[in-house]
Design a protein around this nucleic acid. Sequence first.
RNA 1: GUCGGAGUGGCGGAAUAGGCAGACGCGCUAGCUUGAGGGGCUAGUGCCCGCAAGGGCGUGGGGGUUCAAGUCCCCCCUCCGACACCA
Length: 951
Amino acid sequence: MTDTAEQRTEDVPPYRYTARRANEIEQKWQDRWDEERTFWTPNPRGPLSEGFERVADRTKLYVLDMFPYPSGAGLHVGHPLGYIGTDVYSRFKRMTGHNVLHPMGYDAFGLPAEQYAIQTGQHPRVTVEQNIATMRRQLRRLGLDHDPRRSFATTDVQYYRWTQWIFLQMFNAWYDEERETSRPIDELVAEFESGARSTPDNRPWDELDAVERRQVVDSYRLAYLDEVAVNWCPALGTVLANEEVTAEGRSERGNYPVYKRPLKQWMLRITKYADRLLDDLDLLDWPESIKIMQRNWIGRSEGADIVFPVENHEGLGIRVFTTRPDTVFGATYMVLAPELEIVDEIVTNEWPSGTPTRLRGPFGTDVSPVEAVEAYREYAATKTDLERQAEGREKTGVFTGAFAINPVNDKRIPIFVADYVLAGYGTGAIMAVPGQDQRDWDFAEEFGLEIIRTVQPPPDFEGEAYLGDGPAINSGFLDGLDVADAKRKITEWLEETNNGAGAVTYKLRDWLFSRQRYWGEPFPIVYDETGLPVALPESMLPVELPEMGDFEPRIVGDEEETLPEPPLARAEEWATIEADLGEGRKTYRRETNTMPQWAGSCWYYLRYLDPTNESRIVDAEVERYWMEGDTPSGGVDLYVGGAEHAVLHLLYARFWHKVLYDLCHVSTPESFARLFNQGTITAHEYVDERGFYVPADEVEERDGRYYFEGKEVTRQQGRMGKSRKNAVTPDDIYEGYGADTLRLYEMFMGPLDASRPWNTADIVGVHRFLQRFWRNAIDEETGALRVSEAPADEETRRILHRTIDAVRNDMERLQFNTAIARLFELNNRLTAVVGETGTAPLEVVSAMTLMLAPLAPHLAEEVWSRLGHPESLAYEPFPESDPAYLVEEEVEIVVQVDGKVRARVKIPAGAGEADHEAVARADERIAQLLEGAEVLKVIVVPGRLVNFVTR
RNA sequence: GUCGGAGUGGCGGAAUAGGCAGACGCGCUAGCUUGAGGGGCUAGUGCCCGCAAGGGCGUGGGGGUUCAAGUCCCCCCUCCGACACCA
């Protein structure tokens, strides 16, 4: 048998649009775009401003992708979906008169890069550079319209120098809650010095010594050190932010166990911005689901703080937060989080007389309260969140032996420690109201505690906590009030009697910002002999990462109490510096933690604007030009990326932006005006009976069953990936069809924001479309144009203008799949015209080439140039529809009898209702159906339908 | 459990404002292209009954509003995603 592939290439007409030709064309135009600097986007001033006068009258448009992580695995066809989407959009907007900025960079610090480097035994800088080079090549091959001058990696020294600079801004700033803005720290110091602001413990500023003053000031900074219970992940050798830990108490990356450990760490005061981060969501054109996730993450709750005095402890009160102050009369006990320090003060040495056995905890009847509490604390600390998790979790806890006094009724109530109360939320202490809270109810049942309902449940309600509305009962002066009124009244009472006050609490916590890893931005911070942090001056930036041969994380401490050791601590020469930082030349020790991966991605969109600026993060005028717009929030005009960043990156970046805004480094309150989440591309994956993945491209289908090497396998739908053996690489598609076909297919598969299954077999459809369009314009045998100057016939022209209208609308809304469908229809018409006349009307070919340009830019450029245009079409105006061709002279309407379609009739456009009915009745079939029937009602929707109702 | 999102032919998916369900593509069927084919062209293709004309049924299930429901309302099921003792 002969080689069929070879035979085929011999048979193919010489000028057909084949994969080989597509590849040639694509290479050629990618080179030309580079040479002609087609996608260099001019700034209004500065080093990138060349050519600005040519676009000065255009509207700016900033289109941004969530930049990729340069992994070593290479791309599969699922990765570039969003990049193609933004490319199509930015090319379209360039053709509709915008000055479009569409940059691309690389997010290259962080764990994956470091782990990859450790695996391959190379320095992360080496592997990162290799991976970026590979990725650049792969993205270039797609023909994306990025401005190459604006690309950088977050690991570039000249980039992270400014990441460090932003950290310094936060270190040197504090949040003024009265003015609701961050201000320079010097202004705080001035307030202390002048006495305008009193110190936290009300001592006069003059009486504080230098160290005390520094401690006070440090406690106000946006970036501050704190000893906190961190999420320590020994397997990753680092601590993690709350956001990086799953509900099961495991690391988001790698799924390793995570433990709580107290450690001194850098924190960023994001909680001060909670309300603004919440409120300003209203300014944003974001998917509602993402806004909801951010709102939930911030988790604002309104309620009240109530102080419960502790019996036998003069002046000691326990402050609790509750969203239901109206239920305070039903508080029958209190619970403290085991970690709270106040527990030590109140816990008793002996059980009060009459303490039931079950209140003494699970540690035996002979232990004292102190011992029981201590044992319980240990038990709670060693438990991972996973163990605490399971649904229907049993409530555990220990009585402290102490009692509190309920301020509303002077009732004596026992105080417990229990791990169902979290130290990090509210005040870490609760008043327990089993009647209206199911968790308290469960605990009360477990320990046999009193339950008092304070809201009247419906008559048939029993057996559990009642959370609904109803009149207050057993509640003294609140009795009879509904929940909202009772809340109001009790809050007033608390404030008047000084027993508490209205309060707001957030789920959001301050951002843990230290990592014990090598591959991250070093902090621009040193420590002096006091152990307090000292900021390096801007002139000492960047603080470069030291070269280290061994950058693996180490774990110190014994097995039970392991702790992370930052690799930078081992770079001894680097870690110690001598400098004059205002107190004469001294020896300082550097901060050896590094910043988390999110740091670099918090502000990269600003650096694209002015990537080479050495004196500022971004030139002020350039920043205003690109970020201020006609959106309510300002910021990037379109930001496209995966929904997995709903609360991490997108919240952190908004926070940094607001800090920079407060400190007058940027001009808009928000960073991303419009957000769009592209879907994921899924693929079939096949598992054998042992549960192992088998190569998807070697599976055969017979009668709806699937076989690999003769054995039946199961098919599932899942993410595409190497490990699942179902990855399709772009190179596979380039080889068979070319990049334009790949682009078009990815845009045609479905709506950009929906997840959709990859199906290589479907690609031929879009490939055939490109082939047909090419053939309509160019003779496959001779390569000559088949275009005629003669005008298109009326109907073709009508279709053309309707297509233009629809495509423009769809492109604007990122509905590329339907735009492409319209182009298919137009091309089908064009094919018919060419079939009849032998030539294609130029007006159709030209317009269609331009409409295709954003989607299949290489082919479009090639046809455009063959049509005789020497310049790239990147800046050609997008076709505009002629309204004259959009109105029909005659429209087809539907005639229904009792809602069922019985006929279709033609009627002049704009006809009146009476005409509609008359024409409908005139139809033979309709007349027949209506004969003898009583028409009760006639519904006419002009231009659409007539409905005769007979019953 | 809570909060989101989604269920439409054999498959991917269309369907401004409640008004022709299934655009467009894949696949499939038939014909043409003097053979073969990951080729080209033409026609057909939601399901059922019927030679046809035509009729019936159809957007996860059940109810409702309406002349008219994929679209609006109520209840339920399934799948995907996020959060998860938040007082």
